[in-house]
Computed example of a mutant assay.
Amino acid sequence: MCRASVPSRTASVILRPAAGAGRACGGGTGCGELGRVSLQDRHMSVFRLPIRLIRERFGGDNFDDAGDWVDGWLRDRGERGYRIEYSFDADHANPWFHAMLMRIEGLPDAVGEALRRRLAEEGLGDRVE
């Protein structure tokens, strides 16, 4: 089992400031960077990248390179202002099933599906039909 080589913490990173971030807020929805929206109201797209595929593509434990690749893909398409959270699923006894989970807040479904297809093409995700 290779649990020791897989970080077990969750990182929450905002890669780009949201529109209007830093402005004074009157307390309504849209307040500040994330607004006052309940967790149930926020749409989260989840992408599961097998750790074995990240290691094959980027070498070693270069999980940040996988995150940078996704960020670059989104930027190249003019997609900005998403909150991206990373965590690791290493609960399974077989390391083959360990994965980095990327949760992207507010990603439109069409962009999410395009990203899923591109991850598969790049060898970082499961094949999408």
Rank of each mutant, 00 (worst) to 15 (best):
D89Y: 15
M102F: 06
C25H: 12
A110E: 10
E85P: 00
G22C: 06
G26A: 13
A19P: 11
A114K: 01
R23T: 13
E56A: 10
L15Q: 04
R52D: 01
A19W: 06
Y82E: 01
F63M: 00
A114T: 11
A93S: 15
R80I: 09
F97L: 14
G125Y: 08
H98M: 11
R52F: 02
Y86V: 07
P50A: 02
E122V: 09
A99L: 06
G30A: 13
G35M: 02
R48C: 04
F97D: 10
G35V: 08
G106Q: 10
R36E: 05
E105S: 11
G81S: 13
I104D: 02
W73T: 02
R103W: 14
M102L: 10
R52C: 08
G20M: 07
G123A: 04
R55P: 06
I14G: 04
G123C: 10
D91A: 05
R77P: 04
S5G: 08
F97Y: 15
R116M: 04
R103S: 11
R127P: 03
E79I: 05
G35R: 07
G35I: 11
E79F: 10
A18S: 04
S12E: 13
G27V: 13
D41M: 09
A66H: 03
G59I: 14
L15M: 06
S5T: 11
G123N: 12
C2F: 05
A18W: 01
E129S: 09
G81M: 09
I51F: 01
G22H: 10
D91F: 12
C25I: 10
R75T: 12
C25T: 04
G123Y: 02
S38F: 08
R75S: 05
A110K: 06
V111P: 06
G78R: 14
P7N: 06
P7A: 03
W96C: 06
F47Q: 00
D89R: 15
L119R: 03
D126M: 14
A11N: 08
R42K: 11
E113C: 10
C31A: 02
D61E: 12
G67Y: 09
L119V: 01
A93H: 15
Y82K: 03
G35S: 05
V46Y: 09
D76Y: 07
D126S: 07
S38P: 04
R116T: 12
G123V: 12
I14N: 00
R127T: 11
R57C: 13
S38R: 13
L107A: 01
I104A: 01
A18C: 00
H92Y: 12
D76P: 08
A11R: 08
R118S: 10
D89P: 15
G20V: 09
N94V: 13
D41G: 10
R83Q: 15
E121H: 03
V70T: 03
D41E: 15
V13N: 03
